[in-house]
Simulated assay, not measured.
Amino acid sequence: MAVSTATPPRSLADVISAFEAVYPPAWAMEWDAVGLVCGDPEQRVERVLFAVDPVAAVVDEALEWGADLVVTHHPLMLRGVTSVAANTPKGNVVHRLIRAGAALYTAHTNADTAAPGVSDALARAVGLNGPLRPLDPDTTDPEGRRGIGRIGALDQPMILHDFAAQVAQGLPATAPGIRVSGDLDRLITTVAVSGGAGDSLLGAARAAGVDAFVTSDLRHHPASEFGEDPGPALVDTPHFASEWPWLADGAIHLADALARGDGRNGANVEIRVSTVVTDAWSQTFHHI
Rank of each mutant, 00 (worst) to 15 (best):
M1I: 05
P8T: 12
R10V: 13
R10C: 15
R10D: 01
S11A: 15
S11T: 15
A13H: 10
S17D: 10
S17C: 05
F19L: 14
F19P: 01
A21S: 15
V22E: 11
A26M: 05
W31K: 04
V34W: 01
C38N: 01
C38S: 15
G39L: 11
G39K: 05
D40K: 06
R44N: 02
V45G: 08
V45W: 09
E46H: 01
V48G: 02
F50Y: 15
V52I: 12
V55R: 03
V55P: 00
A56S: 13
A57H: 02
V59C: 06
D60A: 14
D60C: 11
E64M: 08
A67L: 08
D68R: 01
L69Y: 13
V70D: 07
T72H: 08
M77L: 15
L78N: 00
A85L: 13
T88V: 08
V93C: 13
R96W: 06
L97A: 06
I98M: 15
R99A: 14
Y105I: 02
H108N: 06
T109G: 11
D112H: 06
A115C: 11
P116C: 13
G117R: 08
G117Q: 02
V118D: 04
V118N: 01
A123T: 05
R124G: 11
V126E: 03
G127L: 03
N129T: 15
T139N: 07
T140G: 11
D141Q: 05
P142S: 03
E143F: 07
G144P: 02
G144M: 14
R145G: 01
R145A: 13
I151W: 13
G152Y: 05
L154I: 04
Q156S: 12
Q156Y: 09
M158Y: 04
I159K: 09
L160D: 04
D162T: 01
D162N: 08
A164L: 02
Q166H: 11
V167W: 09
A168N: 05
L171M: 11
L171Q: 03
P176W: 15
P176G: 13
G182A: 03
D185L: 12
D185I: 04
V193N: 08
V193A: 12
S194H: 08
G195M: 03
G196H: 10
A197G: 08
L201E: 01
L201Q: 04
G203P: 00
G203C: 10
A205M: 02
G209L: 09
F213D: 01
V214G: 10
V214N: 02
D217N: 10
L218T: 01
R219P: 00
H220I: 04
H221P: 00
H221G: 05
H221E: 08
A223Y: 03
F226Y: 10
E228T: 01
G231F: 14
A233V: 07
A233M: 01
V235C: 04
D236W: 09
P238R: 11
P238D: 13
P238E: 05
F240Y: 15
E243C: 12
W244I: 00
P245N: 09
W246M: 07
L247T: 00
D249V: 11
L254F: 12
A257P: 03
R260A: 14
G261C: 03
N265A: 14
G266P: 02
A267L: 00
A267M: 00
E270R: 15
R272C: 09
D279G: 07
D279F: 14
A280K: 07
A280I: 06
S282F: 15
Q283N: 05
T284W: 06
F285A: 13
I288M: 09
